[in-house]
Amino acid sequence: MTTLTNIGAVRPAPARGGRDYVGIGLWIALAVTALLWFLPLYLMFMTSVKGLPDINSSPMWALPSSWEWGNYADAIDTGDLWVTAGNSLLIAAIKVPLGLGLAAAAAFALARIRFRGSRITMMVIAVGSMVPIQIGLGPLFSTMLELDLLDSRLGLVLPYLAFGIPYQIFVLYGFFRGVPDELEESARIDGASTFRIFWQIILPLAKPALAALFVLDFVATWNEYAMATTLLRSQDNWTIPLAVQSFSTQHGTDYGPMNAFIFMSAIPVLLVYLLFQRYFVQGALAGAVKG
């Protein structure tokens, strides 16, 4: 029978008639954190609906004298939103699930299968997860040029996988090592194969970790700029970060449409988070019950 474990022991209840100072402090910290996250979005939205005179003369947080909703139409046209967002979405839709699948399989093999050299392999992967992208841009450009993959979406997906998988393996390795051996032993006694154990036992237990990595990887892929600007040339292949460049000209930057474009480009990231947030809640509550 599943019972709650000493949830009340997390912090003592306040004395009757006294103030819960710990609770008040937590609410204050939550309010400050929420404000820090909300403020940039608010300033971005306010700028996105202002004309150039308002931007130059009024404070960023002030309401506009006239609401310039046409900035959004200009942003879609200038940044070619549907094409660039489509490119970013296609790359993320291929790279993120494929990278997570490969990382989960590799982490499972390193964590649960005994073989010679597993520790050395894990050390090499850990070092690979710490390599900065910037130092590999030159060799990466030459490699993609020789493979005739320069200025192509496939040529961008491959290095994204190469640089993203080591970190995911490193995270999932620790999670898989924490899964009790008894679960695997019971499954093997029942005749389960290694693949079935991985697919039907390990992966379902790893949903919170996989969901967190999915969101983080999607955001990182959606916002990645360094490799995209190195490998992509034609505007038809541009991703969202590269499209932001189109708002800057020799006469200055059109901040109203640019902020409108950035505000709209953040919507897919928000939707992905909302879709996967329940797994974060499950992960947070997993330690509060026992069976």
Score class of each variant (00 low, 15 high):
10 V>K: 09
241 P>L: 01
123 M>H: 11
250 Q>E: 15
75 A>E: 03
141 F>N: 09
51 G>D: 15
87 N>P: 11
131 V>M: 12
213 L>E: 00
175 F>I: 04
80 D>P: 07
19 R>S: 13
278 R>L: 02
194 T>D: 12
247 F>H: 08
264 M>S: 10
284 A>D: 10
58 S>F: 14
234 S>C: 05
247 F>Q: 11
42 Y>K: 04
37 W>N: 14
146 E>Q: 14
200 Q>K: 15
158 L>W: 08
166 P>I: 09
217 D>P: 00
41 L>T: 07
269 V>L: 12
156 L>N: 04
194 T>M: 13
234 S>V: 05
183 L>R: 07
219 V>R: 02
154 L>P: 07
93 A>K: 01
30 L>R: 04
249 T>V: 11
155 G>P: 10
152 S>V: 11
87 N>C: 07
264 M>P: 03
227 M>P: 02
227 M>K: 03
98 L>F: 13
145 L>M: 14
289 V>L: 15
154 L>Y: 09
238 W>C: 07
157 V>E: 00
173 Y>E: 04
140 L>Q: 08
56 N>C: 03
156 L>D: 00
19 R>Q: 12
117 G>Q: 01
81 L>D: 01
102 L>N: 08
77 D>T: 13
42 Y>S: 14
180 P>F: 11
207 K>P: 00
189 I>H: 05
98 L>T: 11
200 Q>S: 15
166 P>F: 03
216 L>M: 06
110 L>Y: 03
270 L>K: 03
121 T>H: 10
236 D>W: 06
43 L>T: 04
8 G>M: 06
135 I>M: 11
268 P>N: 04
178 G>L: 09
85 A>S: 08
221 T>W: 03
263 F>N: 07
84 T>V: 14
276 F>L: 00
11 R>H: 13
257 P>N: 06
231 L>Y: 04
105 A>C: 08
200 Q>P: 02
61 W>I: 15
266 A>P: 06
146 E>N: 12
38 F>Y: 11
31 A>P: 09
231 L>S: 05
204 P>Y: 03
212 A>H: 04
104 A>F: 05
6 N>C: 06
36 L>H: 09
164 G>W: 02
202 I>C: 10
32 V>L: 14
259 N>C: 14
176 F>P: 03
256 G>W: 05
215 V>H: 00
1 M>K: 15
146 E>I: 08
197 I>D: 06
179 V>S: 00
56 N>S: 14
116 R>Q: 12
67 W>V: 12
273 Y>M: 00
39 L>R: 05
216 L>F: 14
61 W>G: 13
206 A>K: 02
87 N>E: 07
78 T>G: 06
84 T>L: 09
267 I>Q: 06
93 A>V: 04
290 K>C: 10
70 G>Y: 00
4 L>F: 10
12 P>A: 15
185 E>L: 11
289 V>A: 14
161 L>D: 01
100 L>R: 01
238 W>D: 14
146 E>M: 14
64 P>N: 08
198 F>D: 02
118 S>W: 06
130 M>I: 03
282 Q>S: 13
